[in-house]
Design a protein around this nucleic acid. Structure first.
Length: 805
DNA sequence: CTTGACCGGGG
DNA sequence: GTGTACGGTCAAG
């Protein structure tokens, strides 16, 4: 048979010292499984100085390798060897490619081969087998492939085949994936509710009866688990998703399943869910169904481009969807369950969380899929890999197709050494003049670092070549980049940028809001993410292709271009307000008329591929100052003509500040940007008055901090720890991982000793909130206008007194 | 200034 | 399982 399909997931099995891969695919509505039994694990060995490739090959062929090198150890078979030519660093070399039977043999065999005197080193021995397969076969998950082979039977799948051939040169066809989001509610370490939501299906399983049509009552945790598994399998979705499901929901599910002796057979192959350990995290892996946790993807890939500083579901949904969770605090939820009151609201909240996660997945999963197609990782990996790891997977694929051997991953020691080298200079930041500026035009370089790398052919493989006719030399440093042939990194960047350019022009022909437009948008976005990742990757200490020189040269040239741009502006008599890395802020009454001339002047001098672009106008901008009174870098706020603010560097979005402090700062910023400093001062004074008069609702004074262990295990005293200890004495359960919502109450003693949980707080310490919360954040803005703490406070008190007199 | 502990997301 | 990988902040030393 022959089938056109998309790979969604993949794994491998070993049976009797043989290995086969399982490709979990989707073709229309059909679930397809393909078995490939023709792919063997392998790695490379490079000959040392005292041997050539042939001698090394003979040595390997002639040896009998045993596990742990012991005579009675299990045999580590070398199935086949082959001599190949590969690019190694900057030279062409012969390498021995060594095939074995099962993947687990590779690391063991590699150790022994590496120890041979004929071996200089081994290469590509730590690429997970299924990734190796995807790379070598050219399969990119989510992209259409044609599988050919004999049809076989397989339970739980609509079609199954033993693969003879994989053809990746196939025209793309659209494929939809069904998605379900889920969420758990937990009380005293027990699962009490779970919600599930997909297009056309919603349900809440609850341990208590709730008068809602979507709620199904279950007797106990065991029944809840069994029903959960049943429903997931009945609905048989392709993608199961949620927010922080690896760390929270699935770890709860695992514990509950253990307690109740239930098998979490959630995958398509009837197997139980397993945790894959990956460093600091564990990932809940289902087979054949992709479990995509949205949180790590938001954290690793999306957050650099987002405004939100904390990445809880609420903030992320608000930024990406413009939608908020239902207002229900954790305290309210606990009370609701404890007293079995208002359970309808509780169930609504539970369902809402799944609904939000599902909407978020509508937004995010297509991006994960596009990145999977581009980088070639399965979506399960794509959503969990860090930026550097995504980049590296792409590089491994591109290296393979160019017959380049990937460098080895650095050891812990080597990473340490690389870190020790210290930071190199980053972007150039222009010191602004603090205060309020008007009529600001913002310009920035289109993808500064990627374009710099292309313009100067900066790449580890063009660095300091022995033979080269034309060199780009950086005299400040002791190295150069050869210009004769395009390097590995510039070639990849140029490819991505050009492809993206085409996609963008294709986008212009589609209507915004259509599915086609969205899909093109997601593709170009994936390409942008990847193109922008190479610079950071070269300076990342864990990178195989680490090249400090390349990273350093890139920022150096970036600084040169932004400084030249600033010079050009000044030569044209334009006033520079600020600049950071790849952006310049200019101001002037007539800036709108003069900007085109400025842009032409700059762009005419730039190398091909580089471009300065106009970003937008702002009617006002506030720049703060440092302790010494100099203009502060990276801390400013802008307002455009529509009154929308762009705030950078202020603390108003952090959760360790109380709402009263954050709200006040935002209001003060707006007043200042609307050119009304007096109003800003009044806002502060008024807030201080209200705090001192006890008029501020206690809700506005809460501060969050998370406990990671039981409160009594902390050595140091911190407000949240003390608040938790006191609550525990009153009989509250405070398990680890609790987020403590506390308020500093009035009275004597240290601040920590007066911290109480929000629900127990019957007073507040106005002095603390004035001095440690409101004043510091307000001063961050108002110091520029000459206000001091005493002044704001004094005035506050005075106007307070005025009122009473 | 360096070192080490803590924290994130979830309930 | 071709496992074992973060990065920033803050208080203490």
């Amino acid at each position: 048979m022959e089938i056109e399909t998309q790979v969604l997931d993949i794994d491998y099995r070993t049976e009797n010292d043989e290995v086969y891969l399982r490709l979990f695919c989707k073709s229309g509505d059909s679930n397809v499984i393909g078995y490939d039994r023709d792919f063997r694990p392998y790695f490379y060995a490079l000959p040392s100085e005292e041997a050539d490739a042939e001698e090394l090959e003979d040595e390997i062929e002639g040896q009998e390798f045993k596990e742990d090198g012991e005579d009675d150890g299990d045999y580590l078979p070398v199935e086949e060897t082959e001599i190949v030519e590969r690019e190694v660093g900057q030279e062409q070399r012969k390498a021995v490619k060594i095939y074995t039977t099962v993947p687990a043999n590779v690391p063991k065999l590699k150790n022994q081969v590496w120890d041979l005197p004929e071996t200089e080193r081994c290469r590509e021995f730590d690429i997970p087998f299924y990734r190796r397969y995807l790379i070598d076969e050219g399969i990119r998950p989510g992209k259409t492939v044609r599988l050919e082979g004999e049809e076989v039977e397989a339970e739980e799948f609509d079609r199954a085949l033993n693969i003879d051939e994989v053809d990746t040169e196939v025209e793309e066809r659209d494929q939809e994936y069904s998605t379900m989001a889920f969420d758990l509610e937990v009380y005293q370490e027990r699962i009490i509710m779970t919600s599930m939501k997909s297009e056309g299906f919603q349900k809440v399983l609850s341990l208590s009866e709730v008068d809602r049509s979507f709620v199904e009552h279950v007797e106990d945790e065991e029944e809840l688990l069994n029903r959960f598994v049943e429903i997931i399998r009945e609905e048989d979705v392709d993608i199961l998703t949620g927010y922080n499901t690896d760390e929270f929901d699935f770890s709860m599910l695992r514990d509950a399943a253990e307690r109740n002796n239930v098998t979490l057979a959630l995958g398509r192959d009837g197997e139980r869910m397993k945790f894959n350990r990956r460093g600091r995290f564990s990932a809940a892996r289902l087979k054949g169904r992709a479990h995509l946790d949205l949180y790590p993807f938001v954290d690793h890939v999306l957050s650099p481009g987002m405004d939100a500083e904390n990445l809880d579901l609420d903030s992320v949904a608000e930024e990406l969807l413009g939608e908020k969770k239902d207002e229900m605090t954790w305290e309210e939820m606990k009370d609701s369950w404890k007293n079995q009151e208002d359970l309808e609201k509780f169930a609504d909240y539970c369902l809402k969380d799944s609904e939000l996660a599902l909407k978020l997945s509508d937004e995010i999963v297509p991006q994960i899929m596009e990145l999977s197609k581009l980088v070639g990782t399965i979506p399960f990996d794509t959503c969990r890999l860090t930026y550097g790891q995504l980049t590296e997977n792409f590089l491994l694929r591109e290296a393979y197709s160019r017959e380049i051997l990937a460098p080895n991953r650095p050891s812990q020691q080597k990473r340490q050494d690389r870190r020790q080298e210290g930071a190199y200079a980053g972007g150039f930041v222009y010191t602004p003049e603090s205060g309020l500026h008007e009529n600001i035009a913002l310009f920035d370089f289109r993808s500064l670092y990627p374009t710099v790398m292309v313009a100067h052919n900066i790449s580890p493989d063009t660095l300091n070549l022995d033979e080269c006719s034309e060199r780009f030399t950086l005299e400040e440093f002791d190295y150069d980049f050869c210009q004769d042939e395009q390097g590995f990194f510039p070639e990849l960047i140029e490819g991505l940028v050009e492809e993206r350019y085409e996609l963008k022009s294709e986008m212009k022909e589609k209507d915004e809001g259509t599915a086609e437009y969205q899909s093109l948008y997601n593709r170009q976005q994936a390409e942008k993410i990847l193109a922008n990742s190479f610079y950071g990757y070269l300076g990342y200490n864990g990178a195989r292709w680490y090249s400090r020189e390349s990273a350093e040269a890139t920022t150096f040239m970036g600084r040169k271009y932004i400084e030249d741009t600033i010079d050009t502006a000044e030569e044209l008599g334009l006033e520079v307000v600020y600049g950071d890395t790849d952006s310049v802020f200019l101001k002037g009454e007539d800036i709108r008329e003069r900007m085109d001339g400025f842009l032409d002047e700059v762009n005419d001098d730039l190398p091909e591929f580089m471009e300065l672009e106009f970003e937008g106008f702002f009617s006002r901008g506030l720049f703060t100052s440092t302790e010494s009174g100099e203009g502060a870098k990276k801390k400013y706020a802008l307002i455009d003509e529509d009154g929308s603010m762009k705030i950078t560097g202020f603390e108003q979005v952090r959760r360790d500040w109380s709402p009263i402090a954050k709200d006040t700062q935002k209001k003060v910023l707006r007043a200042v940007l609307e050119n009304d400093v007096d109003k800003a001062v009044e806002i502060v004074e008024d807030t201080i008055d209200r705090l001192q008069d006890g008029e501020v609702p206690i809700e506005k004074l809460k501060i969050y901090t998370t406990l990671t262990k039981p409160p009594e295990e902390y050595g140091s005293t911190a407000p949240h720890v003390e608040a938790a200890k006191k609550a525990k004495k009153r009989g509250d359960e405070i398990p680890p991982e609790t987020t403590i919502t506390y308020v500093i109450t009035s009275g004597g003693g240290s601040i920590s000793s007066r911290a109480r949980l929000l629900k127990y707080a019957d007073s507040y310490d106005s002095e603390y909130y004035v001095d440690n919360q409101v004043l510091p954040v307000a001063l961050r803005v108002l110091k520029v206008f000459g206000y001091t703490e005493d002044q704001l406070k004094g005035k506050g008190k005075q106007s307070g007194l005025d009122r009473f007199s």
